[in-house]
């Protein structure tokens, strides 16, 4: 089976752990081998959370710089920061609603311009899907569904090889029943984004 190496970058609190749980469930439902590795030291305190997910026949759960097939970014400046993890062939899917780190507020850095970031990523890589996932999450009913919106876009961009049905089933199984409907709506809004 082909290996597919996916990196998810997010900021603590953006719900990427749940997103990887959904992907794990979809992998189980689809009989796809999968391993993942998460670095979430101090995530609760606003740091960066990175997950490496390897689908298919590989033993390692870790992805070397330049070897990611897909990068899913929850925050635009973190997507840019993670670009050295990618090569020119990497597919990039990113949210563009910014979440500036506190260093910006205290004047220790300047938040890069969104259009400028998009331009750079487009120059450097094969494909970029950049959109305001936060807006769609709010449309679905809650900012907390942004992770699921991004999963919809990930599937649309063919960043993972699951069927839509399996992904929806995984969402149903993993998310809290009270929020399932909202999450499915979020997923479909993400899936409707033009690839």
């Amino acid at each position: 089976m082909e290996t597919n190496r996916l990196i998810i970058v997010a900021v603590g609190g953006q719900g990427n752990l749940l997103a990887s749980k959904v992907l794990a469930e979809a992998a189980l439902l689809s009989d796809t081998p999968m391993r993942m590795s998460e670095i979430h030291g101090k995530a609760q305190r606003g740091g960066i959370v990175e997950s490496s997910i390897v689908f298919g026949d590989a033993a390692s759960p870790l992805i070397t710089d330049g070897e990611a097939d897909v990068l899913l970014g929850f925050e635009p400046s973190e997507t840019l920061r993670a670009l050295p993890r990618c090569s020119k062939n990497t597919k990039i899917i990113t949210n563009i609603a910014p979440l500036p780190p506190f260093t910006v507020a205290i004047g220790l850095g300047v938040y890069p311009d969104i259009e400028e970031m998009k331009k750079i990523i487009r120059q450097e890589t094969a494909s970029l899907m950049a959109f305001d996932a936060m807006k769609l999450a709010k449309e679905a009913g809650s900012p907390l569904t942004m992770n699921i919106v991004l999963l919809g876009a990930l599937l649309k961009a063919k960043g993972v090889a699951f069927t839509k049905g399996k992904m929806e089933e995984a969402i149903k199984r993993v998310t809290k029943p009270a929020f399932t409907e909202m999450n499915l709506k979020a997923f479909n809004l993400g899936f409707a984004v033009e690839a």
Binding site: A43, D65, S77, R81, L83, P84, G109, P112, E116, E124
Partner: peptide
Amino acid sequence: TPATNIDSSKFPEIPQRPPNLC
């Protein structure tokens, strides 16, 4: 031949995101 990763040296500086007290 190792994979060539994207060279970020010419990117605009990205502000650091160290963990912070809540």
